[in-house]
């Protein structure tokens, strides 16, 4: 490995800090171990690819892709799509939980016209008037 460029120093520095943050989050229980492992691995792979760009080119050639940059693009697109889907599914789950909560409150606080002071019939005559 030769002298590091300014770009490599910045990127690896940021990835290093992110890696430490992910590890600490995993240990302290702020995130699940699985999430910490996935993000940690991603940081590590990104740092290796930054420090040794030829590695991605070699890997790309093994997969019959000409350039390392192309391989990174393809992988990024796939990961982005997985990310979108996962986020969509979590959002869907959250929406469903929200609906259950809203429904529960609605039923619990149902307004029954027959038990209120003004009967529905009286109110209906008022409404007509």
């Amino acid at each position: 490995m030769g002298t590091l460029t300014l770009f490599q120093i910045i990127v690896v520095g940021v990835l290093g800090m992110l890696f430490i943050g992910v590890v600490v989050a995993g240990i302290r229980g702020w995130s699940t171990r699985r999430e910490a492992f996935l993000w940690g691995t991603l940081c590590f792979v990104a740092a290796v690819a930054t420090l040794r760009p030829n590695l991605t080119t070699d890997l790309a050639k093994m997969l019959s892709i000409n350039r390392g940059a192309d391989l990174i693009t393809y992988v990024a697109i796939i990961m982005m799509m997985i990310g979108f889907w996962t986020t969509y599914m979590r959002l869907r789950h959250l929406r469903r939980e929200l609906t259950s909560l809203v429904r529960h409150i609605a039923i619990l606080e149902a307004h029954d016209a027959s038990s209120s002071d003004a009967t529905a019939d009286h109110a209906m005559s008022e409404e007509r008037a």
Binding site: L98, R103, E109, D112, A113, M124
Partner: peptide, 20 residues
């Protein structure tokens, strides 16, 4: 209007859609 006219009124505190 629902409270005045309907037999029972249930209130979704936030909009959840027709199916919900």
């Amino acid at each position: 209007i629902a409270r005045r006219c309907a037999t029972y009124t249930l209130t979704h505190l936030i909009n959840r859609g027709q199916g919900a």
